[in-house]
């Protein structure tokens, strides 16, 4: 079974974000970047599938710049066989203006050329948080799609996927090929072990320069949440209730 995993380089979740000079993107200076945590579940699931079946391949693909090679190498060190960097450094702002629609178009164009019985991706990237990519990719590839999967079983070429919905767990049957977006709980992603890191150096990492695709939306501004202001000491419970009701307006 050949699996393609779409991954993204994102700021570590405990990063202190600063807005860049353009007022609509983050300033990358001093930020630690990591593999998107939800993508780790996708990579782990793909590698586990290959290990269980004893055959097949895992190809990781990302849209980014040369910096994203680090996250691809991490995937290779975990056990992926091959990596593809769709290099957007020739695009305006290194592809910074690409929305989920344009990103999905570019990635879909290239995934079409890679044999795939399934495409895995994290349920969302923790930077943009718009959760659009998996569904858009499935639509462009004309594949069935199950999102936010917390348990996945493969038998006779079909997936039985479980997903957490409000107050219940939904069980979905899905043929392959398909697109699966992965959620927390699906597995326990492995650490890239030291032998894996050494082996990753010898695995293929292909870089393909991409051309622009038409975005559907445009990000026009980025603002940090307001700074927390100082606390206020109230004298009694009734004052507290009044303050919550009239000042904070949370009651």
């Amino acid at each position: 079974m050949d699996i393609v995993v779409c991954v993204k380089r994102v700021p570590a979740t405990d990063s202190k974000i600063k807005v860049g000079a353009d007022g609509k993107s983050i300033d990358p200076a001093g930020i630690e970047f990591v593999l998107n945590p939800y993508d780790e579940f996708a990579v782990e699931e793909a590698i586990k599938t290959r290990e269980t079946l004893g055959s097949g391949s895992v190809t990781v693909i990302t849209l980014g710049t040369g910096d994203s090679q680090k996250e691809l190498r991490t995937c290779l060190a975990m056990g992926a066989d091959k990596a593809v960097l769709l290099d957007a450094s020739g695009l305006p702002g290194g592809g910074a203006g690409l929305d989920a629609c344009a990103t999905a178009r570019i990635v879909a164009d290239h995934v079409k050329g890679i044999p795939h019985d399934a495409v895995f991706c994290g349920r969302q990237a923790v930077d943009g948080d718009d959760s659009q990519f998996p569904s858009r990719l499935a639509a462009l590839l004309d594949l069935p799609c199950v999102t936010e999967v917390a348990k996945l079983e493969l038998s006779d070429g079909r997936y039985r996927a479980e997903r957490d919905i409000e107050g219940a767990r939904e069980v979905v049957d899905c043929p392959t090929p398909c697109v699966i977006s992965t959620n927390k709980g699906l597995n326990e992603p492995r650490y890239a072990n030291l032998k894996g890191i050494m082996a990753a150096k010898k695995k293929p990492l292909e870089t393909i320069a991409v051309s622009a695709a038409e975005p559907a939306t445009e990000t026009t501004g980025l603002e940090l949440p307001p700074e927390r202001s100082g606390g206020k000491i109230v004298d009694s419970v009734s004052d507290l209730v009044a303050a919550l009701k009239n000042e904070a307006k949370v009651l």
Binding site: Q69, K70, R73, T74, A77, Y191, A192, N193, L194, I197, M198, A200, K201
Partner: peptide, 13 residues
């Protein structure tokens, strides 16, 4: 890059 990856992997562990 390899040195950083090795270190970060052990650091995370």
């Amino acid at each position: 890059e390899e040195e950083c990856m090795v270190r970060d992997s052990v650091r995370d562990w």
